[in-house]
Nucleic acid binder design. Structure first.
Lengths: 225, 225
DNA sequence: CAACGCCGTTTTGTATACATAAATCGCCCT
DNA sequence: AGGGCGATTTATGTATACAAAACGGCGTTG
């Protein structure tokens, strides 16, 4: 694997997992030494991060990890709603109905997965990811898929701001089942509406139950200037 | 200005203006010599092009200008509809109504601009661009704005596939005026619907009146493999 | 005392040289 | 004669050295 790819993947993970919090300056020599690569592939990695919107190039002071405050989550979800509603609608038009019917049933009975003492909710998250992937595939739109991919990187970062309690996750499972069901029925309008509802509830949960930082470790919220 | 920025801008223009048609291989040394820069900044430019989706990195054969056949225009417009409808709706909620009322009136009387013998329709296109910018500003969503910006690069490429006759442009002006009017009225639902209608008509015009290549110079359509 | 400008340091931007991997072309074997 | 294999060639990937620009500290000056 290429060194630039390793550097990119490593830095992206560090940013998404909040090991590199917003406002962190990513000096070229510093990061190059830390990751054990030369400056050239590292610069390529930083350029890709900037293109993704995870970092922004400041003039003279290198690139800094971009800010992601609660205020911007509203914006993020506005874009998310536009993209995912469209994707769900397209999937309803084009998708394999039997496949989504299966997902609908598995999601409807997902409460059982959540009653586990698995703190990671591994099985449930895998199921949701599977639904997302199926929608992407069924939508059969590379431009939309690319946009959704870029968006999900940002969402992964946001996830650490919310605490997922079992109550919300159970409700989310029902909402996901509704989306899958609408797609299985080939009902594009309903699929889009169900997606809108789900994202609305998801955003409300985040804004209501947000905490300052990951794992109780507080961090500076805003104004990295 | 940085050499990497110049290289990026130059290459992007060459791709958008079809001087580098789809399937063209962009060799590093070749392009570096052509643009008069070293390989290092050129590689950065190529990476940005790949991130934009204008080129894709093939393993072993460098990066090639990405394909944009008529089949993919449908996909492009599906994404476009999702983004622009959302942007129009947000603009209707948040925008300055007087400003859009002014744009509505100017667009409604835009037929006069089109009766000119200006083959570039410069004034009219400037007006449409102004509307787009105002919508972006009013939507006040950086993520959405970034996605729209990336999308418009691809659209600029597609524009060369359609021949804009005065008839279609006059109809488009009316549609744009309807969008601006809906935003001016603060009617988000109507603004989104008007955008959907406009894009539907625009796409239909393109698919009906598409020609093989720009300025009568034919090029290979598909299957650059 | 404050503000402006200069210089040193640090960091980014660029070029080039080297290493490595892939594709092509020619040759040999079947 | 055709196909596969290997060497050559070419292109990409990486590292390092050099240049330029920006920031910060400091001194000077109004």
């Amino acid at each position: 694997m290429k060194a630039s790819d390793r550097a990119y993947a490593s830095l992206r993970d560090d940013i998404v997992e909040w090991r590199l919090p917003p406002g962190t300056v990513l000096g070229e020599v510093e990061q190059a030494e830390r990751l054990g690569v030369s400056r050239t592939p590292l610069r390529e990695a930083l350029a890709r991060l900037a293109a993704d919107g995870l970092a922004s190039a400041q003039k003279g002071r290198g690139v800094v990890v971009s800010d992601i405050s609660l205020a911007r989550i509203d914006e993020l979800f506005e874009l998310r709603e536009a993209l995912e509603a469209k994707a769900a609608a397209l999937a309803a038009q084009r998708g394999d109905r039997a496949r989504f019917a299966g997902l609908r049933d598995r999601l409807a009975s997902a409460a059982a997965l959540l009653s586990d003492d698995d703190p990671q909710r591994h099985e449930y998250y895998a199921l949701v990811t599977e639904l997302d992937d199926e929608i992407d595939t069924a939508a059969a739109n590379s431009y939309l898929g690319q946009a959704l991919g870029a968006l999900r990187v940002h969402l992964a970062r946001v996830r650490r701001l919310a605490k997922d309690d079992a109550l919300r996750l159970r409700a989310a499972a029902v909402e996901h089942a509704a989306i899958a069901g609408a797609i299985a029925d080939g009902n594009a309008h309903l699929a889009a509406a169900a997606t809108t509802v789900h994202l609305h509830n998801s955003l409300r949960h985040i804004t209501n139950h947000a905490h300052a930082g990951p794992a109780g470790r507080p961090h500076r919220e805003v104004s990295h200037d």
